[in-house]
Design a protein around this nucleic acid. Sequence first.
DNA 1: ACCTGAACACCGTTCAAGT
DNA 2: ACCTGAACACCGTTCAAGT
Lengths: 217, 217
Amino acid sequence: MCAMARPRKPLLSRERIVETAGALVDAEGLEAVSTRRLAAELGVSGPSLYNHFRTKDEILEAVADAVSARVDLSMFGETDGRDWRTALHDWALSYRAALADHPHLVPVLAVGPGRRPAGLRVADAVFGAMVRAGWPPAQATHIGALMRYFITGSALGSFARGFVDDATAYDPADYPHLGQAHLLAERRQQVDEGAFETGLRALLDGLSLQYERYASP
Amino acid sequence: MCAMARPRKPLLSRERIVETAGALVDAEGLEAVSTRRLAAELGVSGPSLYNHFRTKDEILEAVADAVSARVDLSMFGETDGRDWRTALHDWALSYRAALADHPHLVPVLAVGPGRRPAGLRVADAVFGAMVRAGWPPAQATHIGALMRYFITGSALGSFARGFVDDATAYDPADYPHLGQAHLLAERRQQVDEGAFETGLRALLDGLSLQYERYASP
DNA sequence: ACCTGAACACCGTTCAAGT
DNA sequence: ACCTGAACACCGTTCAAGT
């Protein structure tokens, strides 16, 4: 009448599924992740996954959440009125780096963070730090969202991503101002990097102007 | 020996396929567009589409291109050194409105514009106008890209999009700074709108600061 | 040239059956 | 509780056949 020993350890766990799915996305891209393929990678049969997740989408969301959770938020810990700008800047760089580490996952990461716990945790951290730095609550909320817009938008819509690598596909006559140089892969990456830097500086400069209006009356 | 009359008019054309696919995406979302379903909508059988497009992806790209091509670029026509900022602002609003008109297509529109003719045409128009307004060429290129990052990022990553509409799914204890109000649908939309306005102003303000450094030596 | 039906190699998901 | 095989209702795409 004592408890029978469990027949054996379960083959799967949510953690192991998320981990393996993440590795598969990184290695072969989103379209390589089918329930059957992922299950094979885990040494089980397809339907087994449904004992741990309700849908395939939930698995991908969990993978995205795990990546989001790894983004450094420590710069929002000791923010005071002087360095909110530095904190935002550092966060933007580490966020961008996290996306660059998992390029195939960016389309999943870029859509609404509202359903992912880690996304809300980020919004909460930015909000708290901005309020402590003297921003009005409404503006503090906006800052977290607009920074994310820019960072995920740059990762997803980069010139380099998915560019057709056939120069002859683009007739320069169609784009009088864009030079031939734009069609080269390395040039495209330079554009992405330069646009990110210029945009980030512009955002922070512009926010600083708005901050002065609130903080110096 | 004179040319025989063509048996009859072709049932399909690229234009008709793109038009019908666009209507189907708008009405029922991206996942409703299968080759079989789209073909049924057109009154033909699935494989017929492959006489006009090489893949289903090419059809969706063409739909996205058609939407991009409808974004107003006239504000870049008569830009001089004084109103590059107004032109960028107006373009941002009309771009955002175009995305809001086709929310289901945003994930397609947000990825690399490099492979779509209309995307390059936009980049070209912005570049030309910025150079005429006095921006150095490298900065002019960056401006087109960074504005697009922000606009598409805000459309794709909006708080309102795909938010789980079950308030009980979020325990306020997990997000000490975010109030209960954030969980309401109307509040989320307000956040999106406010964040877009704040971000757009910050970007333009920040770019104005950089412009002064180039234009007033 | 353009459309068709049949076929291939897949999908996500459900479910009864096993342990 | 957790895993399985079989099955359902789909996919995108190819291809020989028709006109």
